[in-house]
Amino acid sequence: MEFDLAFATKVFAALFAIMNPFANVPVFLSLTEGTSDGIQRRVAFTASLGTVIGCLVSALAGKLILTLFDTDVNDFRLAGGLLILLIAITMLQGSDSHVHARTPKEKVEDLDPASVAIYPLTVPLLVGPGTIATLIVFGETARTQDRITELAFGMGAFLVLLAATLLSAPFLGRHLPPEAVAITRRLMGMILAALGVEMIVTSLRIAFPGLSS
């Protein structure tokens, strides 16, 4: 079967929109503020590894997990679409999503910089409900339409970019203006909103076949 570049690009764009590595650079820097470059690199590496594991589990075992809870993929697609749409709306408004919530300021100072790699950086900041929902849907689509290679390519390309961004966070933090972060967040919000609407429409057409006509 011919390689479906459009599907791979959609996977990459969806993950980029949800996790938005560049917009999360200031968060990474605030969580590791006052630490050495070595600790920052360790946090970045651990967070990247944790994100890879979380994404693989969501994409490969998501259907099995849903089966254990007696939940249909289409039900999860509808719920995931609504969830992603809510995240997109908060991004378009220029605020952080309550779903991919940042750690409250009053608690950031109390965190051990070495421990923030898993919580809250990996979960729920990067691998939050929106990410999990998206990957479960993409994983099921890839299995049913024989697009595993495209899924792996799109997901792998994004995870490489994410790791490179986190490892470069100290450098980017000195050169990335706040305006660029704000513009990126809103642009990704539009892409994410379109993806959420597509997931909702698809699930409704499956649940109500009459809508397709």
Rank of each mutant, 00 (worst) to 15 (best):
A164F: 14
L162T: 06
F12Q: 14
T184P: 05
M190S: 05
V99E: 12
L29R: 11
V43G: 00
V181M: 07
A17Q: 08
D112Y: 00
V197Y: 03
P170N: 11
E150R: 00
T35D: 14
A13G: 06
A8M: 04
T202W: 02
F171E: 15
G80H: 03
F16W: 12
V25S: 03
E140F: 03
I84Q: 10
H98L: 10
P170H: 06
A44I: 11
S95E: 14
Q145W: 02
E106D: 12
H175R: 15
D146P: 01
G94V: 12
A142W: 00
V181I: 10
F3Q: 04
R174N: 08
L192C: 10
K10W: 14
A193W: 00
R185K: 15
R41Q: 11
P170M: 10
L204S: 04
A114P: 03
F208Q: 00
A79F: 01
A101G: 12
A88H: 07
L162K: 04
T202G: 03
R42S: 13
R147N: 02
A88S: 13
G54S: 06
N24F: 08
D72T: 15
L125S: 02
I84Y: 04
N24L: 12
R102Y: 13
F69M: 06
Q40F: 07
H175W: 13
A88M: 11
L172V: 05
R147W: 02
V11R: 14
L166E: 06
A61L: 14
D112A: 11
A157K: 12
G156D: 05
L82R: 03
A44F: 06
G94E: 09
L121Q: 00
R205Y: 07
L64W: 08
Q40V: 04
P104K: 00
L111D: 11
D96M: 09
N74M: 13
P26K: 02
I65H: 02
V73E: 10
F171M: 15
I148R: 12
F138N: 07
S58K: 03
P26Y: 11
L161N: 01
V181S: 06
K63P: 12
V25M: 08
V127E: 04
A194H: 06
P104C: 06
T71M: 14
F22P: 06
G128R: 08
Y119L: 13
E33W: 11
G189N: 05
P120D: 04
R102T: 08
T71F: 09
D4N: 12
